[in-house]
Design a protein around this nucleic acid. Structure first.
Lengths: 101, 101
DNA sequence: TCATTCCGTAAGTATTGACTTACGCTTTTT
DNA sequence: AAAAAGCGTAAGTCAATACTTACGGAATGA
């Protein structure tokens, strides 16, 4: 639920690929797994991790489960790096002014 | 060097803590390690990973090595999630309009 | 009801990787 | 030149985790 857990959850490349694909369009687990180089259970496990981190949501449609990315969670990450950029830039400027050279 | 490698590099919590600390102010390896619950070599290894990902830069000052975060790399991540947010929001709106319900 | 679709979970394996201690190199200091 | 400071790397260990196959449970269709 914290931004840290979200970033950690996006570490594994396969998981990030799943997340990026869901950002383009929601999908069922089966359709999603069919386009990926890993098994369907592996995709399920990654989806659970993404859901636990608050990055995706799930809604049942019949027997299928449709996963979608939660735009709010992406906004949270965007804002985090936004603030982070300010801090880093300040530190960078101070270092140029010979903070303690 | 890609944004993916940067996100992956920020996955491990200890590494992310190191990165956040460097964003506030550049530091030598020893000073940095003194404030962290892991050994100095561990910090060195994380710094290597951050450097390989293009997130931090290194400059020698005498026998010490000062590490700083590269503001440009943070801007890259910010921009990535910025674009990502647009995409996710579009998909979310389409899904509300009953894209294929 | 029986078969089918769709999916999560359990269990097991193998790889990754986060950490440790030990060591050696480079730079400064005396 | 010798000692000290500062740090990277090698080597080894142990836990985390990214996969696999096998199984079972819920929802649809005949």
């Amino acid at each position: 639920m914290t931004y840290g857990e979200k970033i950690s959850a996006l570490g594994p490349p396969t998981r990030r690929a799943i997340f990026e694909r869901l950002a383009a369009a929601p999908s069922s687990v089966g359709k999603l797994a069919a386009t990926m180089p890993v098994s369907r259970p592996a995709v399920s496990q990654h989806l659970k991790a993404l859901k636990d981190a608050g990055l995706v949501t799930e809604q049942r449609r019949g027997a299928a489960r449709i996963y979608s990315v939660d735009p709010k969670s992406v906004a949270e990450l965007r804002d985090y790096f936004d603030r982070f950029w300010d801090v880093a830039l300040d530190a960078y400027r101070r270092s140029l002014e010979g903070g303690d050279a």
